[in-house]
């Protein structure tokens, strides 16, 4: 088999996979511009007969999705900041120090991921109430941080391990400002790892809906994911799929952008975290 034939085969396979994988998402966009009655046609119209952009304006302005997107952003970015900030020193410690029970600790950190999220809702509500953090973003951010820390620590730890000790050492011997030099060396090197960790954290926070639903009590604080449920199962009209998918499409744009822009970061980030050559 010649190389050209081989890469042609790869392109065909990849194109087929790309179409199959992307289709449902494209279909969502198509459904989001269909008027309600067109959603119930068979055969379905692949290209909408009538473009109903009203779905988008309805979702954005009448249903308040715009406000929800901003709230989601605050939650996701807040979690990201806290989670990365806390995992950075923890991961460094786990990568560069030897101490008793390190493996156990690493496993224990992973084990906190083993509890089903549903079950934690009531006790978490209880904790937040005692800390007077019900109905605040701070409370939610703390919970999300606890949930995203394990993975972030694992990713960043791999990163720090890949940075040779000598590199850190030599930068310190230079004599200039000590802490600055550590950050100057370690941060840029860990940046891809932070990027990867950030993406996971962002996504997990962005799509969660059960926690904000339970912990928040003002509608103007609701993130996008909770707002979306407003369109589901209206007891009178049923689910308005056109508007729902329009809202969903709007909420997808930020995540899509982040993935598209940061994907290289992400792939590099996991590389060092995962494999040690």
């Amino acid at each position: 088999m010649t190389n050209r034939k081989k890469s042609l085969g790869i392109y065909i396979l990849m194109s087929a996979a790309a179409i199959a994988i992307a289709f449902p998402v494209l279909w969502m966009f198509i459904m989001s511009v269909k008027p309600a009655d067109e959603l119930y046609l068979f055969p379905p119209t692949i290209w909408p007969d009538k473009w109903e952009f009203g779905n988008y304006t309805k979702a954005l302005f009448e249903a308040g999705i715009d406000n929800g997107l901003i709230n989601s952003l605050i939650l996701a970015v807040g979690t990201l900041a806290l989670s990365v900030t806390l995992s950075f020193p923890a991961a460094y410690a786990l990568a560069k120090y030897e101490f008793k029970g390190k493996t156990i600790l690493l496993l224990a950190i992973l084990a906190t991921q083993l509890i089903p999220g549903m079950a934690a809702i009531v006790p978490l509500f209880d904790i937040l109430q005692r800390m007077h953090l019900v109905n605040t973003y701070t409370g939610l951010i703390l919970i999300y941080t606890a949930r995203t820390l394990p993975l972030n620590i694992w990713i960043l730890k791999g990163f720090f391990q890949s940075i040779p000790n000598e590199l850190i050492e030599s930068s310190m011997v230079d004599g200039s400002s000590k802490i600055a030099s550590l950050y100057r060396v370690a941060l840029p090197l860990a940046l891809p790892g932070i990027g990867a960790a950030a993406m996971f954290t962002f996504m997990q926070t962005w799509i969660d809906f059960i926690l904000p639903l339970t912990m928040l009590f003002n509608e103007d604080k609701f993130p996008f994911s909770v707002m979306l449920y407003k369109f589901v199962g209206d007891p009178i009209m049923g689910t308005n799929y056109g508007v729902l998918f329009a809202a969903a499409a709007l909420g997808t744009i930020p995540t899509l952008l982040i993935f598209a822009l940061l994907q290289r970061f992400f792939v590099q980030g996991l590389t060092a975290g995962g494999v040690k050559g």
């Binding site: 605050i74 970015v77 807040g78 806290l82 953090l133 701070t138």
Partner: peptide, 12 residues
């Protein structure tokens, strides 16, 4: 981000 995280709770 840290600032945002810190002041989220006060919005109400």
């Amino acid at each position: 981000m840290t600032i945002l995280a810190g002041c989220g709770g006060k919005s109400s």
